[in-house]
Design a protein around this nucleic acid. Structure first.
Lengths: 202, 202
DNA sequence: AGCAATAAAATTGTTGACAATTTACAATAA
DNA sequence: TTATTGTAAATTGTCAACAATTTTATTGCT
């Protein structure tokens, strides 16, 4: 899930590692994360571990309590996941609605590149890569809006969906859905693009 | 904006201080925040300053760049604020809808206490206190839902509204609106409560 | 056996120092 | 004059140690 950056601080890499451990069940809800043993495990000082835990707490993956420590957060309930989906639809609709007129060939190209990787993930039956590209596709739509706060909020929504990372199912027809969205975006058909976009978010 | 806790770490207090500085214009969008001078200013070591800057970055108040530092984020555009309001309405509606049946006398009491403080703020013409209570009122509604992820998302929305903290206007009729919401909650009139709640969010 | 008090161990919060990276400025070449 | 290179200063990232707080273990009493 690391992105455009080329180099990553130790702390950032630890964030990613812990996320992966949560996603693949190595870290269970309620489990305590201790700075000292983790620093030992990763063979670094407590500083970057501490930074990582702070970040993950704000992203909702961990629950921090001052002077006590952090525990792994439980995943959102199905009920709340459904609501997140509603919120995502609203947010992405807004983003697309306000930016579609400004899509450049470059933007389309970016989406095409993501589509290409998504297709490959379909072919390879690589669920993880597929979900990553799926989210990247949607992220590009949100990023197109120049107010970065929108992306900040979107991230907060998507982080919380990602607890169920391994349950996000790989649907071959979802590939085609994204193609259709891309086509609608390319032809600047706002109604269709939004309709297809919303349908896709689930 | 500090809440239920009794004691606060140095880092948490610095978070609050920086937020206040952003709210009252002492820190302007684009301005760099340097760990070393800030540590000097607050007469602490860099550690808690660093922690605070990390937290504020994830909350959207600051923009962090690895190895470079952090700058104050620009406020959200009016357009995005409007969207945040839409998202808030959706989220708070969801929260209230799913919890109204479970409201206890204690819950009502909590809301009444907040209302009481809000009334006082109205009387004293204290805009800051009023806005704080306004948000606390809404926060209680979201907190009533036992999945804390909902509150996490709500916080993310509200943090970004708070850039315009000093522009959030004090409306005497808003006091009454909250009273009406409270009354509808108390009598478990879901339709009315939700209608009034949504009307109030702006 | 259960509970309370105390002590010891573990852990978090903070500090100051060193390493790595970026920024600012000066000198040199085109 | 402008662009490039080199150096110094500033800053961030990380480290190890100490202080403060919490958790766990032990002891004593009922």
């Amino acid at each position: 899930m690391l992105g455009d950056q080329v180099f990553y601080t130790i702390s950032e890499q630890i964030v990613q590692q812990i996320k992966n451990d949560i996603f693949n069940g190595k870290l269970q809800p309620g489990e305590s994360l201790r700075e000292v043993p983790m620093a030992k495990k990763y063979n670094v000082s407590r500083g970057p571990v501490r930074d990582a835990l702070k970040v993950l707490s704000k992203e909702g993956f961990l629950i921090a309590k001052p002077n006590v420590g952090v525990t792994v957060a439980p995943p959102p309930s199905d009920e709340v996941v459904k609501e997140i989906i509603v919120l995502r639809r609203q947010l992405e609709r807004f983003a697309l609605y306000n930016t579609l007129d400004n899509y450049t060939a470059e933007d389309i190209d970016t989406l095409k590149q993501i589509m290409s990787k998504m297709r490959e993930a379909c072919v390879q039956n690589d669920n993880r890569a597929f979900v990553t590209m799926d989210l990247n596709f949607h992220k590009e739509i949100v990023k197109k809006h120049d107010d970065r706060h929108l992306l900040g909020i979107w991230n907060e929504l998507v982080f919380r969906m990602m607890f169920n990372y391994n349950r996000l199912t790989h649907l071959m027809d979802s590939c085609e859905e994204h193609e259709n969205i891309l086509r609608a975006i390319e032809s600047k058909n706002i109604e269709l693009a939004i309709e297809l976009l919303e349908k896709n978010i689930q």
